[in-house]
Amino acid sequence: MHREPLYTPRRDLVAKYPTYQDRRVARLPTLYWSIQKEDYAKDFPVILTTGRIVEYEGGGEETRSNAWLAQLAREMYIEINPADAADRGIRNGDKVEVLSPTGAKVFVKAMVTPRVAVGESFMPFHFAGVFEGKSLGPKYPEGTEPFVIGEAANTAMTYGYDVVTQIQETKATLCQIKKA
């Protein structure tokens, strides 16, 4: 049985394919409908998904601290379709602001590529060490700051947990992208 994502761009399908009612899962109250009923798509029209890149693993703390890998992937970025980029006056390599329905903002580089479809975007999830534009570099214990730091994709990722296992929804949410 299909259920639309909590943050869906297809408001026209919500009535037919609604999510669950809010409920308690294990020890915690868990929200579903109370999020989906709000229309975020107007202000946040771009689908956002996340994933891996070959150079890093997981949260990336270990691999970004490895110079041989760090030199291969130096910067956090968002993939954005050429059409969406053109609409926003964004060129490949520009600094952009990714706005989340949670109110969070992350500042990353734009990778303008047809790899993602029009109206969709992608961020890798291995970066951390910058939080909403502010570097946390000086806060690391001396000599331990990874070679590469960047905004964490999850700073912008939104609410949503599987009804059985409480896995987090990191593959289908919404955002807005602006030139920074």
Partner: peptide, 29 residues
């Protein structure tokens, strides 16, 4: 904790706890 969504809440929770213990080869976030 990079792996948890809603980064602002993660930060707030780290600030609210009595004690945070990181056991790791690297000083994770």
């Amino acid at each position: 904790v990079t792996t948890e969504t809603r980064g602002q809440h993660v930060k707030e929770a780290l600030e609210k706890m009595d004690t945070v213990v990181v056991v790791d080869p690297y000083p994770t976030i």
